[in-house]
Design a protein around this nucleic acid. Structure first.
Lengths: 157, 157
DNA sequence: GTTGAAAGAGAGAGTCC
DNA sequence: GGACTCTCTCTTTCAAC
């Protein structure tokens, strides 16, 4: 299911371009890559079927939506058992403030990226949704000063 | 520049749908939202111009690309001065392993999400690209067990 | 992988409310 | 001002090569 998929230079070129703009037309893609548009369509369909491409998402500016403050919450869940973790994850995933959720190794079990209106909203979120839960043993709050876009995801080597 | 933008229920519905699939056609969007296709086109163009929509990105499965292990690196940069931070950020952003980069408050100055082929590759990355740099005072490595998709980003309230 | 034709989607002008 | 319809053009898709 999650084995690595063989990709040729055409596939890689397509993936690089679509990571910049997932709405690039197959015609433009074809011109840039140097194959026919129908070939691009074929390649992208194959990349979808093989699971390399999971989907395409809009990138939004949280500040423009009134969520001008972002933070990372490091959360320790004790006892660290599945019957406590699963409901915790479902609850946190469903919060409108949650942007990303990771289960990690190390002293903090979960990392949660949240977008809030300001420090008051952040305090409410931490106190009412995190530390209020009996399984949450500790929450460390780190504000996000800035975040950067990174290069496209490509195979190693 | 980063003030909140007024959005009506039609805008919100469009944003919710496009966050699931950024390639949804304006016709489908129009049918789901209950307005004419050209109106959808208009709304999306406006959301782009106002900066709410920053772009659209392909979501890929790193494991399918041969990067089956992901980790979070917590990095302390000392001294924490701009003339050291800026080159550090540019270098880290440009690494093929880097998926996300955050400047945070708290004891760890930077959080870096990386995708690598395995533990050997992770060790090489940490030792050669992070701790080898004189301004990097400390790196804490946390493996990512699992990560979850979250709901769409929407305004508060 | 390519070509070419049919079906489908996008972008604009004009019109109405 | 905002939304709708109509139309023209460009894009996607599919069958045949």
């Amino acid at each position: 299911m999650s084995d690595s998929v063989a990709l040729d230079p055409v596939d890689l070129h397509i993936l690089r371009l679509l990571q910049n703009d997932a709405r690039t037309t197959y015609r433009d893609l074809a011109a840039a890559v140097g194959v026919a548009p129908s070939t691009c369509l074929d390649r992208v369909a194959r990349l979808r079927r093989s699971g390399v491409i999971l989907g395409q998402q809009l990138r939004l500016d949280p500040a423009k939506l009134g969520r001008g403050l972002e933070a990372m919450l490091l959360v320790q869940v004790r006892p660290h058992r599945r019957d406590l973790i699963d409901p915790f994850v479902e609850r946190i995933r469903g919060l409108p403030e949650t942007r990303a959720l990771f289960h990690l190794t190390g002293p903090d079990d979960f990392l949660v990226q949240v977008a809030v209106t300001g420090t008051g909203d952040l305090q409410r979120l931490v106190v009412d949704e995190f530390t209020a839960r009996p399984e949450v043993a500790r929450v460390e709050t780190r504000l996000i000063f800035q975040q950067w876009d990174c290069g496209p995801l490509l195979p190693p080597g």
